[in-house]
Design a protein around this nucleic acid. Structure first.
Lengths: 242, 242
DNA sequence: CGTAACCTTGAGTGCCCTCAACCACTGTGG
DNA sequence: CCACAGTGGTTGAGGGCACTCAAGGTTACG
């Protein structure tokens, strides 16, 4: 299945840098497939060789690492427009896994064509590097959260960060949005146990900071959440979309 | 001060991919300066605009983030051959800081010339992206360590990881190498308090896993350290040097 | 209506934290 | 030459945050 990049409903959102017809044409040429996968699918298997690169077109995903004894750390969450597998495609074997959190649609960018992109469309190659840097800055934030914040602050920081990202994509309506993480996902992302995550969430809900039920999160007191997390971030910059 | 890249003593080490004369010439042209800075110098200031890109030629450095209330998280350590400031140069303001841990020498790669590199030397541009991905994989590892390992395991994982990186650069002799981190640095990297870091270090030393005195670390039982950290990593791949 | 996945709650423990000293070493200036 | 300050490392006491264990409740779904 091919898709017509010129009418891409994602590209027109203000979160993304607008592109010339010519650039979109180059991207359209590069795309080989448009995939739909159900929730829970492994997009990149840890240790996988020759993995491909994708643009997440719709849905949520996450990157993770497992220790040999089964402990799991979620490294970052991926939202529409994010690149999947750039890092994995650079090394001989993927050092992490990626899994679909919801049903997702992916645009397949074969790694070999990415290669040729560097020779033929330097400005797009630069944007790939840019997206890689942005992916790293998300992990930098998460490491700071896990390393230096307590449980309540971690939950607050995660919720604000996801809220802002969802908002930039127009997914927030009446200060509420689809929130597909289970408490186990939250625990694995924040370096907490499941039980403690549950109790921390309940306390914050009781304080009236947000509502969270049936995979829907409603922000009730963003200022208090930001103050709790000591979280004052620059607003999100417009980013390229491939 | 200019430096003659053709005789670069770093480039000949087996850790790095060997390059053609022509590629080295391109790199040499791009280099604008060779800086020597004392330990403790801030190389990139958080929030700095228009930061430059450097290759760390000698010495150690680290990237960090501060919370508004003063808590510090060290994101990753940088050793010779690593790129400094790639991520910062992509955004309008640096989202993190970088500081010299020892006296360092830096090769200055002006960000504007990096830009032109994408147009003129695609294989080098690709290697910049590669180095960015490698930098991220280091942070991925650190996040996994901080999120899912206990104090003893964290210390073990950090020491093995730095040992392997130093070894790949030929800095290890008789299983010992210069180890410039203070206990405060270790604590800030691992998300632990200074006091608990001290006690954990002492216990591991008493178990005969390693010696650490006067900024020199001697590995005594690598197998036991790896087992403790549940750390079984792929060996380090040869990497490009710019 | 049974099963599985997810969420909730309580009890008890321990890892890691903070607070508070004290020690070792180095460089500096009177 | 020695007092002194500064930096970094060491140790003990005590408490709390987050952990594990265990059980039960709720929701979704075939």
């Amino acid at each position: 299945m091919r898709v017509w990049c010129f009418d891409c409903p994602l590209r027109v959102k203000p979160a993304f840098k607008q592109k010339s017809e010519e650039e979109v044409a180059t991207i359209h040429e590069m795309k080989r497939d448009h995939l739909k996968l159900p929730a829970g699918t492994e997009i990149i298997h840890p240790g996988q060789e020759d993995s491909e690169i994708y643009t997440l077109f719709s849905g949520w995903a996450f990157r993770f690492k497992m220790l040999p004894d089964g402990r799991r750390q979620i490294l970052s969450f991926l939202l529409p427009g994010d690149l999947i597998g750039l890092q994995a495609s650079m090394f001989s074997a993927a050092l992490y896994g990626t899994e679909a959190l919801t049903a997702v649609e992916l645009c397949l960018l074969p790694r070999r064509r990415i290669w040729t992109l560097f020779g033929r469309a330097p400005e797009l190659a630069f944007e790939i590097t840019w997206l890689g840097a942005r992916g790293q800055s998300l992990v930098d934030d998460n490491l700071t959260t896990v390393g230096r914040r307590n449980a309540a602050e971690r939950v607050a920081a995660l919720i604000i960060s996801l809220y802002k990202r969802a908002d930039s994509l127009g997914l927030v309506k009446d200060q509420a949005f689809e929130f597909p993480l289970s408490q186990q996902h939250i625990a694995d992302a924040l370096g907490l146990s499941l039980v403690h995550t549950n109790k921390t969430l309940r306390r914050l809900k009781q304080r009236g900071l947000f509502k969270l039920e049936r995979n829907r999160l409603e922000m009730q007191n963003r200022g208090a959440l930001e103050k709790l997390a000591d979280y004052f971030d620059a607003p999100i910059e417009a980013r390229p979309l491939l």
